[in-house]
Design a protein around this nucleic acid. Structure first.
Length: 501
RNA sequence: GCGUCCGUAGCUCAGCCGGUAGAGCACUCGGCUUUUAACCGAUUGGUCGCGUGUUCGAGUCACGCCGGACGCACCA
């Protein structure tokens, strides 16, 4: 990050100095405006061209453009643009000269009367103005824009200044999260926060981040899911609990993965996965309408319709539809393995029968699931926290939602039998001991909690970032995370500086 | 982690087979004044991501490193 030595910055520092020499505080404390810019655009939208009013207003915001040597100024606040008209007839001599000490990027406040120019631009005919913040850094050229993707992520604030649509994504993200909270709260759910720092990270198949607690002198893990604690709350007597919180998984980065992301997990007593599918469908459909005004959305030039009843399809049936293969007819593990290998699917040595079926599904079916689809009834081996299917012991009552070929949510009838839970987690622990870093640890306290008795419960996790991606037509998860994880620049130098301290 | 591509002025980009680093915009100065990227004129601005090598000579070629985009893998 370059902070000095540039001409453009030196020029702005000179202007800053001159402002101070003239007795102007370039960083004042407060400004009281009468209107937001967009309010004025709406209030005067019917004002005829080349018409003046007596209405006095005060506006403020960031200067983004200037024409005719500061006679016309484009001022942006969060709501939008208003043009300032700074004519010499209306401004005192010193204020007129001082315009030359302004730069694009400065914040100013201005007072004047409303007029509409011949060209139809609603403007404030400025009689006085004040500097609210002098900007020292030059903004990217507004015509060419700010296209360097890396720079846009590293300096997201500049990206937001230059592209109101970037801010719009984060506004929609905030609206989405608020909508989900309202939806759940209206149905008697309670949001309760669970620990981020954990002695063992469970509840999902993922590698955790490790950190260190100094006073206890012990390693702690950042959570990879909220599941096991939210279930303890169900056991504790809450009937409907959820948490919208940050999850951390120590995995690769991609357009669909950020090491920290936001997940909504909900646990609801006395319901099963059938009821949960209905509830989830209602939530997502309502959210789509709330954010976009329609159940039909455009994502990457594909129309996705959340409106009609979503298809529900078992994993076994999905595989049969896509490949003709009936995995249920294959009983022997070796035969299953050979079949998958012949289909060109890469398998790890320790893959179980269920994991192979899932691998076939992922490689042959997922990508084609464009419209919202519930894939239901997963193999038991890959679902250690899910209740066995009421009609089939090889499967569990689990669904995942797929949209645009991507997994959006994962829900199930929760396993509530403590002895079976212990057995399932012991198998996971064996896998972990055998070197599978993604396998779950044996959380004895969780099993103890379940032994006190856990009611039938339905539970779901929804990836908020991916949901917002869909609803904002964002190709990359970085477009819906304000400050995505980036490698630092000059890593070697930074390391050296730290070791010298 | 692997593969492909990318990194040149504040921004957006040229730069051919290796031969004195360029343009537009921005900035500064002057002129003009009811614009819609205002216009006219002049000036200014560079660690060519970093390093090593080849060469009389490297933005350009080779190798290594740093950072990024996309794809694959892992996963949500």
């Amino acid at each position: 990050m370059e902070f000095d030595g540039t001409r453009l910055r030196a020029e702005r520092l000179r202007k800053l100095r001159e402002l101070r020499e003239q007795g102007v505080n370039p960083y004042p404390y407060k400004y009281t405006r009468s209107h937001r810019n967009q309010e004025l655009q709406e209030k005067y939208k019917d004002l005829a061209n080349d018409t003046e009013t007596e209405d006095v207003v005060s506006v403020c915001g960031r200067v983004m453009n200037e024409r005719n040597t500061w006679m016309f100024v484009d001022l942006f606040d969060e709501s939008g643009k208003i043009q300032l008209f700074c004519h010499k007839a209306n401004l005192p001599e010193d204020a007129l000269k001082r315009l030359r000490l302004l730069d694009k990027g400065d914040f100013i406040g201005a007072t004047g009367t409303i007029r509409r120019t011949k060209q139809g631009e609603i403007s404030v005919k400025v009689t006085k103005y004040e500097v609210l913040a002098k900007s020292l850094q030059p903004l990217p050229d507004s015509w060419d824009g700010f296209k360097d993707v890396e720079a846009r992520y590293r300096q997201r604030y500049v990206d937001m200044i230059m592209h109101p649509s970037v801010r719009e994504n984060f506004r929609k993200r905030a609206l989405a999260i608020r909508y989900i909270r309202n939806f759940l709260d209206e149905r008697g759910c309670l949001e309760i926060e669970t620990p981020v720092l954990q002695v063992e990270a469970g509840g999902a198949d993922a590698r955790p981040f490790v950190t260190h607690h100094n006073a206890l002198d012990m390693e702690l893990y950042l959570r990879i899911a909220t599941e096991l604690h939210l279930k303890r709350l169900i056991i504790g007597g809450f009937e409907r609990v959820y948490e919208i919180g940050r999850i951390f998984r120590n995995e690769g980065l991609s357009t669909r993965h950020n090491p920290e992301f936001t997940m909504m997990e909900l646990y609801w007593a006395y319901g099963d996965y059938n009821e949960l599918m209905d509830l989830t469908e209602e939530l997502v459909r309502g959210l789509a309408v709330h954010l976009t005004g329609s159940t039909k959305i455009k994502y990457q030039n594909t129309t996705i319709d959340f409106g009609q009843k979503w298809r529900r399809l078992s994993m076994v049936q999905a595989i049969k539809d896509a490949t003709g293969l009936d995995v249920k007819a294959i009983k022997e593990y070796e035969e299953m393995r050979d079949t998958a290998l012949k289909m060109g699917i890469e398998l790890k040595h320790e893959d179980s029968r269920g994991a192979i079926i899932n691998a076939i599904f992922e490689s042959k079916c997922e990508a084609a699931l464009i419209q919202p689809t519930f894939i239901i009834d997963y193999p038991v081996e890959i679902s250690p926290l899910t209740k066995s299917h009421r009609r089939n012991r090889d499967e569990v009552e689990r669904f995942e939602i797929f949209v645009f070929g991507r997994e959006l949510a994962n829900g199930y009838s929760e396993l509530t039998d403590p002895e079976e839970q212990r057995t399932r987690l012991e198998i996971q622990a064996l896998k972990k001991a055998a070197g599978n870093e993604d396998a779950m640890p044996l959380d004895l306290d969780f099993i103890m909690a379940m032994e006190y008795g856990m009611p039938p419960t339905m539970g779901i996790g929804i990836g908020i970032d991916r949901l917002v991606m869909l609803l904002t037509d964002s190709a990359s998860i970085r477009d819906v995370i304000a400050f995505p994880t980036m490698k630092p620049l000059h890593k070697d130098r930074d390391d050296e500086e730290h070791t010298h301290k």
